[in-house]
Amino acid sequence: MIAIYLVAALAVFAAIRATVEKNTGRKLPYVNVMNFAIAGTIVLLLNHPLALVAAAAYFVGSTLEANAIASTYAGGEQRG
């Protein structure tokens, strides 16, 4: 029962930490931590078999998004 509050507090901490960070490259690991915490929350929130699939879909989508941002950020700096 305490686990979901712990994960939600972790998500808030990671969101604050990602917001106050100046460097873009250092922001992305904190965004990943927040995405893992949100995926854990979706599983813990409901007792339904489809919750596992929904959490997996959120996990895949958010990881793809963060990696695409990181790839464009690194490639754009080298090329420019």
């Binding site: 979706i42 929130l45 489809l50 919750a51 929904a54």
Partner: peptide, 22 residues
């Protein structure tokens, strides 16, 4: 773009809590 990702991370549990998992 990262901040827009954080906004979506904030609203995803509200969709899950309503039961609309699909």
């Amino acid at each position: 773009l990262i901040a827009v990702g954080i906004v979506f991370g904030g609203i995803a549990p509200f969709i899950a809590a309503r039961g609309y998992l699909d």
